[in-house]
Each structure stands twice: as structure tokens, then as C-alpha cells.
């Protein structure tokens, strides 16, 4: 017996299973990052002095990264919109851009990290750096997770477009919701860590 509502919406909820699932998952992610932000506030309030992020961290690089990540969010939503307009080749292009931009984000992050390490700055240096490395590191892991999913949907997973286009579009929408969330987290991380 087949599991109902994998592709089409259940009439009374108006949702297909995957969409409800990803939103619940994102709710738990909100609590995960919420706990980290809460820790940040608690540690900062308890600290006798707290450094200004812009004096210790590389704001220009982070600004570029913000632009990169926001752009990747736009290409992501465009890739979904292309599927809605039944334009598969455009989907491939936009999804390709999304993946490319996420790699750019990681490369910039890599340079940021290594320049810190080369100045003998590690998570153990101070509480500020501890929270900086932990939060951006965890966010980076989420970016890598997003790349894996998006690369699958860009490459081998796109076969489903032929067999079950509705379900494939759903998958891209779900991956998109996750990706926008990763973007959303960064939108808060950026001012909190770098600008305040």
C-alpha cells in the first residue's frame, strides 16, 4: 500500500508530507541556533569586557559572504520557479549557480579561518573567538549539508523530473526552504558577530 500525500497535498491541511516535515525540522533548527544565540547573550552579559567584532574580524570578507549567500538564496528560489514554469534547463542553470555560490561562501570562510589560525588565534583564545568559531563552524556544516542535497538534486536526483515532475518540484522546494533557512541564520550571525 502506498503512502498517501507524498506528492499531492492532503485536502484538509493543504500540505504534502515533505513540506510539513521540513518546516518541523526547521523549527528544531530554530531552537538549535536559538540556544547558541542565547549562550552568546549570556556569555556576553557575564563578561567584564567584550570586544567589538569589527576590530577582530574581517568585515569586508563577511560582507562579501553575506552578498554571496543572499544571491545563492535568490538563485535557489529561481531554480524552483523555473521548475514551476516547466523550464528544466533553466532549473539546471540556477541550481548550478546556487551550488557554485555556496562553494564561494565556503572558500571565503576558509580564508577567514586560516588567516586567524596563522595569527595564532584559535577557539581557545577567548570566549569571543570560541563563540565565533563555534557558531560560524556549525553554520558552515549546514552549508555543506545544503551543498550535498543541492548537488544531488542538480545531478543524479534530477531523473525524477521525468518520472514524477510534481514530486521533484516538491523536493526542490524543500531543499530551497532549508537553504533559505541557512541564509536566514547567516543574516543574524553577520551583525551579531561581526558588527556589534
Amino acid at each position: 500500500m502506498e503512502i498517501p500525500y507524498t506528492a499531492t497535498a492532503r485536502p484538509d491541511t493543504g500540505l504534502y508530507n515533505g513540506k510539513l516535515g521540513i518546516w518541523l525540522f526547521l523549527a528544531s533548527e530554530v531552537m538549535l541556533f536559538g540556544a547558541l544565540f542565547s549562550s552568546y547573550i549570556l556569555l556576553r552579559v557575564g563578561a567584564p569586557v567584550w570586544p567589538h567584532g569589527s576590530e577582530l574580524l574581517n568585515v569586508p570578507l563577511a560582507t562579501i559572504n553575506t552578498v554571496v549567500l543572499i544571491s545563492s538564496s535568490v538563485t535557489m528560489v529561481m531554480s524552483w520557479a523555473s521548475l514551476m514554469m516547466k523550464d528544466f534547463s533553466k532549473y539546471r542553470m540556477y541550481m548550478g549557480f546556487t551550488i557554485l555560490l555556496s562553494f564561494v561562501f565556503l572558500v571565503i570562510k576558509y580564508f577567514e579561518y586560516t588567516s586567524k589560525f596563522s595569527h595564532d588565534i584559535f577557539p581557545s583564545t577567548s570566549t569571543f573567538y570560541a563563540i565565533y568559531f563555534t557558531m560560524t563552524g556549525l553554520h558552515g556544516l549546514h552549508v555543506i549539508g545544503g551543498i550535498v542535497v543541492n548537488a544531488y538534486l542538480w545531478g543524479p536526483g534530477n531523473k525524477m523530473w521525468k518520472s514524477d515532475p510534481q514530486r521533484f518540484t516538491n523536493r526542490v522546494e524543500i531543499a530551497g526552504l532549508y537553504w533559505h533557512f541557512v541564509d536566514l541564520v547567516w543574516i543574524f550571525l553577520f551583525p551579531v558577530l561581526y558588527l556589534l
Partner: peptide, 10 residues
């Protein structure tokens, strides 16, 4: 910014 992303992209 968060509202824009959540409201429109999501």
C-alpha cells in the same frame, strides 16, 4: 532582512 527571506523566498 529575515522577514523578507522568510516571507518571500520561503
Amino acid at each position: 532582512k529575515g522577514t523578507l527571506v522568510a516571507g518571500y523566498f520561503m
